[in-house]
Write a protein that binds this DNA or RNA. Structure first.
Lengths: 333, 333
DNA sequence: TACAGTCCTGTAAGCGCTCACAGTTTCTCC
DNA sequence: GGAGAAACTGTGAGCGCTTACAGGACTGTA
């Protein structure tokens, strides 16, 4: 058993000053003489004093912590290095502050209850929400708590006041424009779920690029981001539009399904049909052929969400952000 | 702005009892009449009261949170779904308790300082440490703090009192025995860094299996877990032991490098040379051919670490755990 | 009826810190 | 040298909760 850590009062005694002065030194407030400051600092280091966060929180009404809540149990969150990347980004910014990171996986009912408890017990000063589903209950909970909240991604039904999102539309458009520049004209698309912001945005990006180039945007199959739906979509496309020479697929998982179908049908990639995916999942570089895809700046999203939240906590008014994506060129185009 | 949340005192007033009684109800202590209890519960739900954690922490000297510190910036931690899996496991157990999860990435100097601060300011009741490097400073910091600490993995230099680890040796042995059972006899190995517990254990597992089967354990190349070192190791092995018919590789990354070299040298896998890796990284199922490998129970490690820590916090004396691995059979054997 | 046990309840003293307030000292500038 | 401002410091009242401790109200027993 370790002995009880030293308190501010003991520091004050040792330094021969009052507790108020010690507190001022700790929070480097003004109005402290060099002499007192030095005495206090000496006492602090001799005693190995570190302020007790609970006591400080109680007095200041500030928690010194933010919570990152991850809502969906969507496998998309776990495929990929999504998790690691977001957290790396969040951590990088938090390291520059005194804020601690609390993590809540709120996929289950229980997890949601825990999240609610954190909010209501005021265990955190702010919230970062990765809620990929539409109408996610966490979103409302955070709002009702009144805590500053930053969203990662948007839903179609409601644009949160503060969010960071990837440029789904722009990314899709760039991907399709890349296909066009490579001389493809009969470009099809397999969409994701259109009732998600990402799915909708990527589809819009496709249409935008095609229309602007004066090409037909009518070669469309609808999927749900899953590998199986990608395969099914590809089959439909081959039936309906045997002339297609490229396909923009709204997720890598679907693209993988599509590649299988193309192979089964004797289509060579990219010679006969070029394929572009979206997300740059880890396996994208190991497909046959390696998949050209759109990479989302996930770590940057984590970073920017955190920056935004920190600003909010400082009373500033940040502006929401849409981050650019990268087109990763590989052998499938 | 939301109004200040209700306090315990307001609950007491509304319920017509004293604060002591309310506190007893909240912590469901004994000696509360049904009448008071009901009155208090009614008041609580009417007011939407939730105890303030900071105040409670201050009074009880318990924080209601544990910290998960991830030390290494080792890419191995980020390849894979390591991150997501560990956290999923940790979260699953934590959901059954009232403990919150604080996450610290302590790869940088700054991160380490933050970790120290958490320990010293007593912001957490216990520590889970994923410190993959030998002699990791975090390990000592945690120990000095006196907080209950559970380690994920071991280092060679020092076995922590409480840890959860995967059975590296047993996993390796099972992999090699699988090769033997398939009729291979000239089995080589490419080791990982032997000064890590994992590298050492896997090598021991290889030797154990070979010796027990009466086979030579002398076909050895040493690597450092990286893809490049796997390729280099494979080259050496082919030169020194052209008769080899199988190779147990201590990491998937190295196995991928080895597969490349085998292909370049016209060796067919698995016909000429069977290959087994270790870790089951996401890409292992997409290699050519798909890689047979040893899967570590990462989520289970997270779960067991957390269980162990919870027991420790309850004053129980848990015992350290070595979790079994799984052999994932694919086309490379 | 008296007396010890049990239960229940209220009271109040902390937990370790911050911060307004008031008091004291030191400057600054005529 | 003195008035007023500025800088410094100590004091003490909280922040919202827990937890002895001290009763008071019952119960059962002699």
């Amino acid at each position: 058993m370790t002995t009880r850590p030293p308190t501010l009062e003991e520091v004050a005694q040792r330094a021969g000053v009052s507790t108020g002065t010690v507190s001022r030194v700790i929070n480097n407030a003004r109005h402290v003489s060099d002499k007192s400051r030095r005495a206090v600092e000496k006492a602090i280091s001799e005693l190995g004093y570190v302020p007790n966060t609970a006591a400080r929180s109680l007095a200041t009404q500030r928690r010194g912590a933010v919570v990152l809540a991850i809502s969906s149990d969507d496998p998309a969150l776990f495929a990929n290095l999504f998790f690691a990347e977001v957290i790396t980004g969040v951590n990088a910014v938090l390291e520059e502050t005194d804020l601690q990171l609390m993590l809540v996986l709120a996929a289950s009912e229980r997890g949601r209850a825990r999240f609610a408890k954190i909010l209501q017990s005021r265990s955190a000063d702010g919230v970062m929400l990765l809620a990929l589903k539409e109408n996610d209950p966490l979103s409302k909970m955070a709002e009702e708590s009144g805590l500053p909240t930053v969203h990662g991604g948007r839903s179609l039904d409601r644009t949160p006041q503060w969010y960071v999102d990837a440029d789904n539309r722009g990314g899709a458009r760039a991907a399709v424009e890349h296909l066009i520049a490579a001389g493809r004209h009969n470009i099809a698309t397999i969409t994701g779920e259109l009732d998600t912001h990402a799915g909708h945005g990527r589809f819009m990006g496709y249409r935008e690029a095609m229309v602007l180039a004066g090409l037909s945007d009518q070669r469309v199959a609808h999927g749900d981001f899953s590998e199986a739906s990608g395969a099914a979509g590809m089959k439909l496309l081959l039936d309906d539009h045997p002339d297609l020479d490229a396909v923009f697929v709204a997720s890598d998982a679907m693209a993988i399904g599509a590649l299988d179908v193309l192979r089964e049908n004797g289509k060579r990639v990219p010679e006969d049909v070029a394929v572009v995916g979206f997300n740059d999942v880890v396996t994208a570089r190991n497909t046959q052929p390696a998949l050209t895809t759109v990479r989302q700046p996930i770590e940057a999203m984590g970073r920017e969400m955190t920056r935004m939240l920190v600003r909010l906590l400082n009373g500033e008014q940040p502006t929401s952000l849409i981050l650019p994506t990268d087109l990763v060129l590989r052998a499938s185009t």
